[in-house]
Amino acid sequence: MKHVSLLTLLLAFAGCTDIPELEGKEAPSIRNAAYPKLVPLEETLGTPVDPVSEASEVEEELTSRSEELAKKAAALQAAEIN
């Protein structure tokens, strides 16, 4: 209960805070600047990727990496320590 009253008191004090006005604080060059040109998202991102083919490529890559790691592990297991 003590924490709730402390939180309420802190929120009440936060509500009394003066927040400075931002109107008129920007530079004249920004105030008079033109809006940026809007570009369709497709032009920015490029052609959409087929998720099925991308998933198969990733799966093939991970499978080959897994096989290479398994070969390395087998070679380490077979290595004789002197």
Rank of each mutant, 00 (worst) to 15 (best):
S29E: 14
A73W: 00
L10H: 10
L11T: 07
L45W: 02
L9G: 14
A55L: 10
E60M: 08
Y35S: 13
E59G: 10
G46Y: 02
L38S: 13
R65S: 01
K72D: 06
K37M: 10
F13S: 14
L11C: 14
V52C: 13
G24S: 00
T17M: 15
E26D: 14
A12T: 11
A34Y: 00
A79I: 01
A75C: 00
I19N: 12
V58M: 02
T63L: 09
S53A: 09
I81D: 06
K71M: 02
H3N: 13
S53R: 04
E60P: 07
Q77S: 09
K2V: 14
L6E: 15
L69K: 05
V49P: 04
L11G: 12
L45Q: 00
A33Y: 00
S5M: 15
A27R: 03
L76Q: 05
A27H: 12
A79N: 09
S56W: 09
E59S: 09
K71G: 04
S5V: 15
A74T: 03
A75H: 04
N82T: 07
I81K: 07
K37H: 10
G24W: 04
L69G: 03
T63E: 11
V58Y: 05
A27V: 05
L9A: 13
P40Q: 08
K25L: 10
F13G: 15
P40I: 02
T44G: 06
T8L: 15
V58C: 10
E80S: 06
L38K: 12
E43A: 11
A33V: 00
I81V: 14
A34V: 02
K72N: 00
T63W: 08
N82H: 09
L38P: 11
Q77V: 05
A34E: 09
E42A: 06
I19M: 15
L69N: 06
P51F: 02
K37G: 06
L41K: 12
L22Y: 09
K25H: 12
L10V: 11
V49H: 04
H3I: 14
L76R: 07
V58N: 13
K71R: 10
A75S: 08
A34Q: 03
S29N: 10
Q77K: 12
A34F: 08
E80H: 07
S66E: 04
N82Q: 11
E80L: 06
S53C: 06
E67G: 03
L11S: 14
A70D: 00
L6K: 15
K37T: 11
S53V: 11
D50R: 03
K25Q: 12
A79F: 00
A74Y: 05
S29G: 08
A78W: 01
A55N: 03
S53H: 00
E60S: 06
L38F: 09
T8A: 15
P51V: 05
R65C: 03
E68W: 01
N32E: 08
K25M: 09
V58T: 11
S56Q: 13
R65E: 12
K2T: 10
L6Y: 15
L22C: 12
N82P: 12
E23M: 12
T17N: 14
T17V: 15
V49K: 02
E42Q: 08
P40C: 05
I30A: 11
K71Y: 00
T17E: 15
S56K: 11
Y35F: 13
P36A: 03
E68D: 06
A14G: 14
A78E: 03
K72I: 01
I81F: 08
E67Q: 13
E42W: 04
P51Q: 01
G24F: 08
Y35Q: 12
V4D: 14
E59F: 04
K72R: 04
